[in-house]
């Protein structure tokens, strides 16, 4: 077990190295920075001097090592636009994104699990039909459209909730619903099919034969057995929510990482894009590591 954890952490570190290489290369394949950073009338000497200053005259592997060294020190360069630490800008925005993603995930889970379980238990009844409609519709609704409709109904017409910005709970409601909607539908669907499979198992039959209450059979045994795919998928969805909040953050002007990435891409502010990619990638790696460790707790047969 201890060995497994070490190996898994090693794998995560290795993946992090790959990610850093990709981030590093991204900045090198988007053209000569001296062209976009220096005025057009700059002389060749100016350009050479500038390259030396940025270390761009060094061989590529040395440039990479310098880059990694800086990243490890928390330096991912300065934003071209704001002349501030790029990493600082991203980390400043990170809590907003984390908050939105976490609340969306929580909302999605609270909605999806009961729906999925109920649909499986009441298979082929109107409850199941309704749940399947919810799952299909939820997955088919475009995020930006849902966000706009919610704003139209609850902010513009009813005036119950603010249209945009970050602040109290009332600011969170619409973005969280918008962002979590797809996940709720997808998790509900997976929970239903996972539960259906678990309820077909011999042990569920044996437990019923042994006089165990249906509540125990369904919520303790079937659900725990159905949990591994559900947990995996939830982690995956959380990653999507973290990195894919771009649309929702744009629609609701939510001051998160997604919003700043869109701005940075438009302004070709590469250090910020790099920092955002790096931070998000690290978060997702960490999330995956956690889920893998969770497996062995969920299923005692998983011993590495």
């Amino acid at each position: 077990m201890g060995f497994y954890i070490l190996r898994r952490i090693g794998q995560t570190a290795l993946t992090a190295v790959f990610v850093s290489m990709i981030v590093f290369s991204l900045a090198r394949v988007t053209g000569d920075p001296t062209i976009s950073l220096l005025p057009t009338e700059a002389t060749q000497e100016d350009r050479d001097f500038f390259r030396r200053q940025l270390g761009l005259d060094q061989p590529l592997h040395l440039q990479y090592l310098t880059f990694v060294g800086r990243v490890l020190e928390g330096d991912m360069g300065k934003s071209f636009r704001y002349r501030e630490s790029a990493l600082g800008i991203v980390l400043n925005r990170l809590p907003a994104t984390l908050q939105l993603a976490a609340v969306s995930m929580l909302l999605a889970t609270i909605i999806a699990l009961p729906i999925g379980i109920l649909a499986a238990v009441r298979r082929d009844t109107w409850i199941d039909t309704l749940a399947r409609w919810f799952a299909t519709l939820g997955q088919a609704t475009p995020t930006f459209w849902l966000g706009l409709i919610l704003i139209l109904v609850f902010s513009v017409h009813l005036g119950w909730l603010p249209t945009s910005g970050r602040g109290g709970v009332e600011n969170l409601v619409l973005p969280a619903i918008t962002l979590g909607w797809f996940s709720a539908a997808a998790i509900a669907r997976l929970t239903r099919s996972s539960m259906l499979e678990a309820m077909q198992s011999d042990f569920v039959r044996f437990e019923r034969l042994s006089g165990l209450p249906e509540r125990i059979v369904v919520l303790k045994h079937a659900l725990r057995n159905a949990a591994i795919p559900i947990v995996t998928y939830m982690a995956l969805q959380f990653g999507v929510l973290l990195s894919g909040a771009v649309v929702t953050e744009t629609v609701f002007a939510w001051p998160g990482v997604g919003l700043i990435v869109v701005d940075a891409i438009n302004a070709r502010d590469y250090p910020v894009v790099q920092a955002a990619v790096m931070v998000t990638a690290m978060l997702i790696l960490l999330l995956n590591l956690l889920v893998d460790l969770l497996y062995s707790w969920l299923d005692p047969r998983i011993r590495y």
Binding site: D202, F206, E207, R208, L209, S210, G211, H221, R224, D299
Partner: peptide
């Protein structure tokens, strides 16, 4: 069930909750 009338199934490999 479980108290007065009980049952043993054909396949013991799958009749117990693995978790």
């Amino acid at each position: 069930r479980g108290r007065e009338i009980t049952m043993v199934l054909q396949n013991p490999m799958t009749a117990m909750d693995p978790l």
